[in-house]
Amino acid sequence: MTRERMLDLVGLAARLILGVTLVVAGYLKIGSLQSSARSVQAYQLLPFDVATYVGYALPIVEIILGILLIVGLFTRTAAILGGLLMVAFIIGITSAWARGLSIDCGCFGDGGIISLEEAQRKYPIDIARDIGLALCGLWLAWRPASFASLDRALFGPRIVDSPGAPTPEPTSPDTQTSQSTQE
């Protein structure tokens, strides 16, 4: 197995980990958008009404980004947006922790009753998980090429590699570089 294929496999794993997590998180919340709005309000970071609308939109956005990542369509864009979402969650949870709020992160739609001790115990776990997921996004933003992706099936083998991305083969010829700039 070449180095390139190895990296493609890593890309596939990153896509599936981030994508499936986003779809599951969105799916568990989409049945109750009112609860999702409460979870966002609970962080007390956004103005109340803004938090409400963010709460309504969040599960849908998560599912869309998750599906794009799972099928590997517009991988880089989806990965950047998914990664930024994770960064936003990390900031939110860290801030809730620092302010001594006892909230459930609401990440997977649970929310509700939680004691301060339980919250303090869960914050680092939630943050660690989101850092891992953000790293999946970062990897795909850096190298979106991966196995079994619609990007590759629809738009050709290299087209998703923009000029800024390091090419897997150092000796990549000009023909391919010029082709990839057509993105």
Binding site: L154, F155, P157, I159, Q179, Q182
Partner: peptide, 18 residues
């Protein structure tokens, strides 16, 4: 490299527009 370039080029024309 050549094979890939040839394979990719016509695909650009016929495949879906990004």
């Amino acid at each position: 490299r050549k094979a890939k370039a040839q394979a990719a080029a016509p695909r650009q024309g016929r495949g879906p527009n990004k």
